[in-house]
């Protein structure tokens, strides 16, 4: 699931409510039958819902990458061997195994973000919320993270909530929720939103680049109005 919306629309607040970091004034948040408002159930909710934020420097707690990733599993009370195993696996998942003994301050912004993700993956949560967590990554790094998560989603039924201002990132989501002024303004499939310029203007969202180009080419009469391709190669094929 993807949650999109402008700055200040309530996306991050919603994420923190789901994770139990914030409690609702009214209503209730229930994760797998556990209520975040119930103090005895809250820590279980936090163990199930991992939250990765947008500023990695805010999330580091240790002087070495490996120790930082180990922090979560240690707090779950796991055996030492299990912790080592999880740290190793999580760092491999995000291709940061060569940096295990590095201090985080020597890493680039994107590398730091991957270490933060590894810290959450090492806790083996049921759900992961990525709150603008790929904003610092280059397109290749972003694709890599989304592929890792997609694999986890299929293999271990990990639930993913992707919070972003960039609708383009939401292309793999089953559903896209649009937040506006603290409310859910729409809930629809990616393509229905990406192709509808009027809706995008209404929600102050930028049209994904590909759909903008296709709309232009249709307007110019270079593609037929009912053309429905989904890649640049298909556009080239249709034009030539």
């Amino acid at each position: 699931m993807a949650i999109v919306g402008a700055n200040g629309s309530g996306k991050s607040t919603l994420a923190r409510l789901i994770n139990g970091q914030l409690l609702p004034d009214k209503g209730s948040v229930i994760v797998d039958g556990l209520h975040t408002s119930d103090r005895s159930q809250r820590s279980q909710v936090r163990g199930r819902v991992g939250l990765v934020g947008s500023v990695p420097d805010h999330q580091f707690v240790s002087n070495l990458v490996a120790d930082d990733v180990a922090f979560g599993p240690q707090n779950l009370g796991l055996e030492r061997e299990e912790i080592y195993k999880r740290v190793d696996t999580a760092l491999r998942m995000v291709s940061m195994e060569d940096y295990a003994q590095y201090p985080p301050y020597l890493l680039s912004g994107g590398q730091k973000q991957r270490v933060c993700l590894a810290g959450i993956l090492a806790m083996q949560p049921r759900y992961i919320i990525l709150d603008e967590a790929t904003s610092m990554l280059d397109p290749q790094g972003r694709r890599q993270i989304l592929q890792i998560l997609e694999k986890l989603r299929q293999e271990s039924k990990l639930g993913i909530i992707l919070i972003t201002q960039d609708l383009e990132e939401a292309c793999q989501a089953d559903q896209v929720i649009v937040m506006q002024a603290g409310q859910i303004a729409a809930n629809l499939p990616f393509r229905a939103l990406a192709e509808n310029q009027e809706l995008l203007n209404q929600y102050h969202l930028e049209q994904p680049e590909f759909y903008h180009l296709v709309a232009l080419l249709k307007k110019q009469g270079l593609l037929s109005p009912d053309w429905r391709g989904d890649s640049l190669d298909k556009v080239v094929e249709a034009l030539c």
Partner: peptide
């Protein structure tokens, strides 16, 4: 340095 990161469409 990366002044556009974290801004929404309008802010950008």
């Amino acid at each position: 340095d990366e002044p556009l990161v974290g801004l929404d469409h309008k802010g950008r």
